[in-house]
Design a protein around this nucleic acid. Structure first.
Lengths: 228, 228
DNA sequence: GCTTGTGAAACGTTTCACAGCA
DNA sequence: TGCTGTGAAACGTTTCACAAGC
């Protein structure tokens, strides 16, 4: 911040690490998903076009995106499905298990605790907590080993289970307060389902999923497409 | 498509309706959410800065975004909270009730059927269906008036209830097939929770929510922020 | 011949900065 | 004085197009 040198010339002569566009990182997840489907169906090699088409992207986009991270393809051939999967997992950091705590044992929290899609991608929900002490002790639908715990346990759980991620499924009113507890407990990424914008230190990544907003966006696009 | 005239000169002399950026439409939903919170706390008027700050945007961004849809503020004063709420609802099309069908009565489907955030924004889930005929007849958690129905009922339900939206919470393998049924039944917007990219006619709007992808994105951002 | 990797051009979005109005 | 509305500049992202490699 107190740096005198112009940011873009400070590494002249170095590898020129072009900043990766955020949308490219998001698409990486989709490339991975598609590659896993290709792998399941026995395909060994794909071209950028084969990867792009089912996702609704262009081949150039795929090549550009991959280009931000290295050179993985063979001209005339394409990309190896298995090694591309391994590479993207490494880039995303999902070549290992991530432990997450879930806060909010309501309607949505219960569903998320049992969502198999998380486990399939290497995310493990290691504890479920709730701000309501009365809910403590209840066991959850799918995994009977998970029992709702009171918030006081949070710091211990995060430390013992080495959790870096949290899933926040509490009512809007409680979200900011709980998010701060998570931050103090050592959580570095929050997947937030509460319809509020969280204010947390910059080192904590936040990903908001507001289900009502998603429907609202559909309403807008239908409204200006179809006459009613 | 067979139009001869250049698209950008076809309305010379008209109002110059500058195309609205997609990100601006998305932010509109967040402005609305924030304005509703301001309204609940009794605030009557806000400046673009007051609206921007809690959302992490800039005041200029707010003014630009609103500018795409008209002129709503008073210089020196700001924007009227109530009339801004009404205006944005009208723009998004949520100044009326939207009926939606939900397909998939599993873990996630059950939670979504009972999610109160939808109703609060004027979205009503009028039916729950499942591809598994054995599930038909079961009643759902929260609202006992909702009973799982077999897929054969879909066309009748959509017509009778005037549903334009669908929430898709079926396994990946079934998603494309079900999405096509929805399209044939007259659905124009799909909120898709299945981890696949749907291929549907252009007139159908699709909004994808892949929960595992959201965690993956957090993993990436933590990986390149915090050393492990 | 087919496909990658990548500069350069085109396009889209955000930020700046200020005239004009209450 | 305080704030909006908006062109113009800056910035970021996608598309184009083609040389190089298998």
């Amino acid at each position: 911040m107190s740096d005198q040198a112009p940011a873009n010339t400070s590494d002249v002569g170095q590898k020129r690490p072009v900043p990766v566009p955020e949308p490219a990182v998001r698409r990486l997840s989709l490339y991975l998903r598609q590659l896993e489907a290709f792998h399941a169906s026995g395909l060994l090699t794909v071209s950028s076009k084969q990867l792009a088409d089912p996702l609704g992207f262009t081949d150039a986009q795929v090549r550009k995106d991959l280009g931000y991270f290295g050179q993985f393809g063979k001209p005339g051939k394409g990309y190896s499905v298995i090694s591309m999967i391994a590479t993207i997992r490494k880039i995303l950091g999902t070549d290992r298990i991530w432990n997450a705590v879930l806060v909010g044992a309501g309607n949505l929290g219960n569903a998320l605790a049992g969502y198999r899609g998380f486990a399939r991608k290497g995310f493990r929900i290691v504890a479920v907590l709730d701000t309501d002490p009365d809910k403590a002790g209840r066991s959850l639908g799918i995994d009977p080993s998970l029992v709702v715990q009171p918030m006081e346990q949070l710091p211990d759980i995060v430390r013992e289970k080495n959790a870096r991620l949290a899933i926040l499924a509490v009512p809007a009113e409680a979200a900011q307060q709980v998010a701060e507890q998570l931050t103090r407990a050592g959580i570095f990424g929050v997947l937030n389902f509460a319809p509020v914008t969280l204010a947390l230190p910059r080192e904590v990544s936040i990903n908001d999923v507001d289900l009502a907003v998603e429907l609202e966006q559909l309403a807008f696009h239908i409204g200006s497409t179809v006459k009613m």
